[in-house]
Design a protein around this nucleic acid. Structure first.
Length: 453
DNA sequence: TCTGGGGTCCTAGGACCC
DNA sequence: TCTGGGGTCCTAGGACCC
């Protein structure tokens, strides 16, 4: 914990709904609910007028309509929210040299760090006050709640307590008095499952949690969770404000208006999701080794299957193919028994940064719109990579035949090597082997029956 | 018409290696 | 002779956050 309250947490008040009310004056002072308005939508944000009726974030829109039928129901307008968010983040960067954005409407700033070309803040409370006014001005009237405290966790709790449109400063000497009476459910990381374990043990307030025996807490919550919650409850939080974090995964998922029962359709949907993920990987210059498929059944049970390849990819065909294979490994009996498939998702993790290979030999036939293969950067140093294998028959996703191992398809190729995933037998997923790209046992093959998942 | 979409982190077991 | 121990990677599932 720092010696002064200089960690700032800013949270925009009912952000999406507030933007809608700003842009449409007839909605001001009225209940507004922003969220998915399809049959299976959930509430993203409810205005304070709607919260009076018990409408909450993450509630199904159907339930919200029951509770507050006269509210205005709107779907999200992300471009508008992004403009407002950028303006707010710019004000934060003008106040501090160290800003950690948590989401579109929330960020930490370390007021001990000077912004570019400006002196460090010497009165954090005054700076916070000024920041709130500037946020109001640059966004055309949106309000932010701000917490200022000697640590991240206390600052976040303080902004929550300050809501709406408030500022709360918690000085180091006041941390205990501030934390003690708060309900444990206020602490980030205490959700329904944790609460259900804490309540029977008589743990209701942060003070109760803080005074818990360490071993008891570990038995109740598991080691990592117990330790982090106890630290927060005891005001022991030295986590620094971190300006940038590397992405760990990229995923896309979709809940269907009606549950799917047709495996062919599921395969098509998985391809669409794979394409979405691959294009975002390429946009962000990322690639990953692990492909995961997620299936949510009508009964809400979830099954995931994943596969890790020896090389990273950002290729649509490769990811789509791996995803279809993984989908096929999810028991088809299960989904008819469970009443169909409600959601499908495709994710890629095990991410690595690309090195753009600028000394490339012309790759493939030249009209391939997306990446065929690129070299992966090592974790630390950026090292020039040898040219990519220009042989088009080994492009990712291509069907191949190997004299000994049978049918397969190319996961990745380059540097004179081809990595092939074979289709059989019985190994979910099929075995993977790497060959020299001039291996005489390896030849191109015709694509399989398109109806195969 | 109950329950989105994009993430992060943790756990636990098995494989594998030294 | 009843059979170590630690570390890492991978997979599946779950809790949680905004």
């Amino acid at each position: 914990m720092r010696s002064r309250a200089e960690v700032l947490h800013l949270d925009l008040d009912s952000f999406f709904a507030a933007v809608e009310q700003r842009d449409k004056p007839s909605l001001r002072g009225k209940p507004v609910v922003v969220g998915g308005i399809g049959g299976r939508g959930v509430v993203s944000t409810a205005s304070y007028e709607a919260r009076v009726f018990g409408v909450r974030s993450a509630m199904s829109v159907a339930e919200a309509r029951r509770r507050c039928p006269h509210a205005a129901y709107l779907s999200s307008r992300f471009p508008a929210y992004r403009v407002a968010s950028l303006a707010v983040m710019a004000e934060l960067h003008a106040t501090s040299g160290l800003v950690e954005q948590l989401s579109i409407d929330e960020a930490y700033a370390d007021l001990g760090a000077a912004p570019d070309g400006a002196p460090a803040v010497d009165d954090p409370a005054e700076a916070a006050k000024a920041l709130r006014h500037r946020v109001f001005d640059v966004t055309g009237g949106l309000t932010a709640s701000v917490g200022l405290a000697p640590s991240k966790s206390v600052a976040k709790l303080a902004s929550e307590v300050a809501k709406p449109d408030g500022l709360l400063v918690v000085e180091p000497a006041d941390v205990r008095a501030f934390l003690d009476p708060l309900p444990v459910s206020a602490v980030a990381g205490v959700g329904p499952a944790t609460l259900a374990r804490l309540q029977p043990a008589g743990i209701r307030t942060v003070a109760d949690l803080a005074s818990m025996d360490d071993d008891d807490a570990v038995r109740l919550l598991g080691s990592a969770h117990a330790r982090s919650l106890l630290a927060v409850a005891r005001g022991e939080d030295d986590r620094p404000v971190v300006a940038y974090r590397e992405a760990k995964s990229v995923s896309a998922e979709e809940t269907f208006e009606a549950d799917l029962r047709d495996p062919l359709r599921m395969g098509q949907e998985v391809d669409v999701l794979a394409a979405r993920v691959a294009s975002r990987l390429r946009r962000d210059n990322l690639a990953g080794r692990t492909v995961t498929v997620k299936v949510r059944f009508a009964d809400f049970s979830v099954r995931t299957r994943s596969y890790t390849a020896p090389e990273a990819t950002d290729n649509t065909t490769t990811i789509g193919r791996a995803a279809r294979r993984l989908l096929a490994e999810v028991d088809t009996l299960t989904w008819s028994e469970a009443g169909g498939v409600r959601l499908l998702g495709v994710g890629v993790s095990g991410l690595a940064d690309w090195v753009q290979p600028d000394l490339l030999a012309p790759a493939g036939d030249g009209d391939e719109p997306e990446t065929t293969d690129r070299a992966v950067a090592p974790a630390v140093a950026v090292v020039p990579q040898p040219p990519v294998d220009p042989t088009p028959q080994w492009r990712p996703g291509a069907d191949v035949q190997h004299a000994e191992h049978g049918r397969g398809w190319v996961w990745g190729s380059g540097r004179g090597r081809v990595t092939v995933r074979f289709e059989g037998p019985g190994t979910p997923p099929g075995p993977v082997r790497t060959f020299a790209s001039d291996d005489p046992d390896l030849s191109p093959a015709d694509p399989p029956d398109p109806l195969t998942p």
